[in-house]
Amino acid sequence: MQITVDMTLCESHGQCVFAAPEIFSFDDDDRLVHEASPPDALRDKAEKSAAVCPVRAITVSPASPPTAS
């Protein structure tokens, strides 16, 4: 599973951190950091995070193709 967060949208609401602390956390400057490819066992939590983000910054996608950089 692949998680992307659009940091131009994220307003540090923290709803994703509440819903899935295994995946999301904040650094000391209140910037969101996240696990890019968490284990599939966390899928429900990841989707819950995407659903509660007030600015819809989170995308959860199934595959993990690390293509062009």
Binding site: V17, S25, D30
Partner: peptide, 11 residues
């Protein structure tokens, strides 16, 4: 304020 990271444990 500016410490959202600390809210998680309260929550």
């Amino acid at each position: 304020v500016g410490r959202t990271g600390r809210l998680a444990s309260y929550r």
